[in-house]
Design a binder for these strands. Structure first.
Lengths: 146, 146
DNA sequence: GGTTCCTACTTACTAAAAGTAACTATTGAA
DNA sequence: TTCAATAGTTACTTTTAGTAAGTAGGAACC
């Protein structure tokens, strides 16, 4: 049963992401994140350097990679090791906690890759219908959505 | 094998979220979203009205709920049905495509709820270490991260 | 017959986050 | 002396999220 260390006596029966103040809400925000999914996916099997990660994740900027890695480190999902060499070498490794999550995130990636065509078709249908509704409207027909 | 309907001849061997231009990247952004996780979780078993969803998701604004629902409808993950009554009634139902995703998202929610304490402890450790590093710095000790 | 209530939204505005591009530090090698 | 390499920062712009108030069409109340 979770406890709360803040001042006012507050008994938390269980964590629930549907509660606005619940810290799991913030957590969802962090783990359900595009860059997190991609970074953790790469660290699943082996430790990697900053530059390697950046090369393997198409289109991530240094700033966003740094930010994502810092967040994951803070949450205890990855570990950062600095080798004081020149040029510098920094290695990122997944932690045991991170390993409990990486499978779920990989499943999301796979879902995206396997269902993307269905989704794109749905988007086309939706956009076409919306377009038609708009052109009807310009012809003087008033469309009410509810 | 996926095909691309855009003008320049382009052969896509397979979708890959690590490619910057891949549409699965956008998809990850959509499904890996706090509100999406919570909304789809509620629609898993039964259709719900707008106001019911808003009541059950603590802290979501009308604007964000509308936005999330529109996105999910466009992607073909939920279906919107309007009953032209007064006061208006609009029902949201999960689609077969949505059902293939909802389990994965529920797993994320459960992960957050079961591992949140471990994460909070890791954050405390990280923040304490950072605080110490900062106070050392003000004492005149230069800290170099790499 | 004016006011209030109901639902499911919009719209205008502000704050926060994401993205872009250029800059930094260190030092070994050309 | 300038360049290259790594792993970042920093300043700035754009996009997105969040807040709060307004809208529409009646139905019921006073």
């Amino acid at each position: 049963m979770p406890k709360d260390s803040d001042q006012p006596l507050q008994i938390v029966l269980s964590w629930n992401a549907y509660q606005a103040a619940c810290p799991t809400r913030l957590m969802l925000n962090r783990i359900a994140d595009k860059w997190t999914v991609l970074v953790l996916g790469l660290l699943e099997t082996e430790t990697k350097r900053f530059s390697t990660l950046q090369r393997q994740i198409g289109g991530i900027s240094q700033k966003m990679l740094t930010q994502t890695l810092r967040g994951l480190e803070r949450d205890g999902l990855i570990a950062r090791t600095v080798y004081p060499e020149v040029p510098p070498r920094v290695e990122y490794a997944i932690t045991p906690l991170g390993k409990t999550l990486v499978g779920l995130l990989a499943a999301l990636r796979v879902w995206s890759e396997t269902h993307i065509e269905e989704v794109l078709e749905a988007q086309n249908r939706y956009d076409k219908a919306e377009q038609q509704a708009l052109s009807e409207e310009t012809k003087g027909v008033r469309i009410i959505r509810f």
